[in-house]
Amino acid sequence: MTARLLPFCADPVRPAPPTPITITVDGAAASGVAGQSLAGVILASGALGLRRTSASGRARGVLCGIGICYDCVVEVNGQRDVRACQRRAVDGDVITTQHDPLPGGDTG
């Protein structure tokens, strides 16, 4: 019951066969195909949540998918605040999900 990449052989759009890529998200491997956004790879790996909010620690995922809402920001290879829906995944990318507690609040 998660997001799913349409298998290319069943796709009416008839795309070229995909090249598999693998990234890590908080240390766990996630597989996708070349050309996908980081958000797409993470969603297809079964995770719907990409970060936790600062004040209440609630899970957030992808909302707008087009770079407007900044809900999907992740740390990519050490760069913070990268919109996962805007950045294409590169094989070997190291993703860390963000959770920034407020000053004086509970540590994440």
């Binding site: 019951m1 997001a3 956004s37 797409g40 990409l50 899970a59 957030r60 909302l63 998918g65 087009i66």
Partner: peptide, 26 residues
């Protein structure tokens, strides 16, 4: 509406057309 799994229409479109990803099965 802040739960993961809530997308805008545009977001569902972008994932569907841009990478052939369906945001959900149902």
């Amino acid at each position: 509406w802040d739960l993961p799994g809530v997308f805008t229409g545009g977001g569902a479109q972008a994932l569907a057309k841009g990478e052939r990803l369906a945001v959900g099965r149902a």
